[in-house]
Amino acid sequence: MNLSDNEFIRYSRSLMLGDDALERQLRLRQARVLVLGLGGLGCPVASTLVSAGVGALTLIDGDVVELSNLPRQQLYQTNDVGKPKAEVAAARLRQHNPHPQLQVLQCRLNDEALREAAEVCDVLVDCSDNLPTRLQLNRLARETGKPLFAGAVSGASAQLYLLNRHSACYQCLVDPDWQVLQNCRSMGVDPALVTLTAQQLAWLLLQYLQASADQIAQAVPFGQANQIPFGQANPVPFGHASSIPFGHYGRFAASGNHIGFHWYPLQQDPGCTCCGVSSAPEGEV
């Protein structure tokens, strides 16, 4: 298994990033990612993954392009208004990079097709725009054991959450009985903030997908890595997964001399009906 000459040239700048850059690029080419939602978050996430050389992407979005999407959803052109987002996005992404395998999936949330797609993916990415979809994908991630990378943006608020089968889940935090959370339709959205959030998510995804199983297993838990003293070389190699904040919820904020995401460990609700003790099948407690 190796890169073609064409791929070597295309990815040459990524291949300069450390001694294991080729292995990282090959791991990325092996990866399959499911992206649910191709709006303000999904467009940049899919673009970055495809241009960086992810192996396969499953794209899901049942909406059509609307004029009011265009200020932040840069995969769509003005004359795409009215066309199905997933089809347009896939066509545009193929033009940009013909190597990744792109699959458009038309499905409802409770379809078996979605479960089957999730089962063959390495990670699930939630770029959706509503609470019921988020809860459904959270449950699917929990049931399939797949890591969940999610972004959420409305108004001037931007949030991220990264969860896996060892962590708390989204339903620990959000009650399914809540009516709705704020979304872009009700609150509007800052176009640059949604793109920034998507790229933070894409960067974390690439870090994760390019790391080896050993690097992930040996990673220093997020928040425990020490600051590197000035003048010392960074002991953490590229691809080291110490920076993947699984089990954390990130919130964009500007305070002091820091502008960016502040990450908080999410405590599990032992009574959570999705991941808590009460949700475990008989004999698995």
């Binding site: 943006v153 608020s157 979304n183 919130r251």
Partner: peptide, 8 residues
């Protein structure tokens, strides 16, 4: 304290 959002 902050508001959770769900848009994308």
């Amino acid at each position: 304290i902050f508001q959770l959002v769900a848009g994308g």
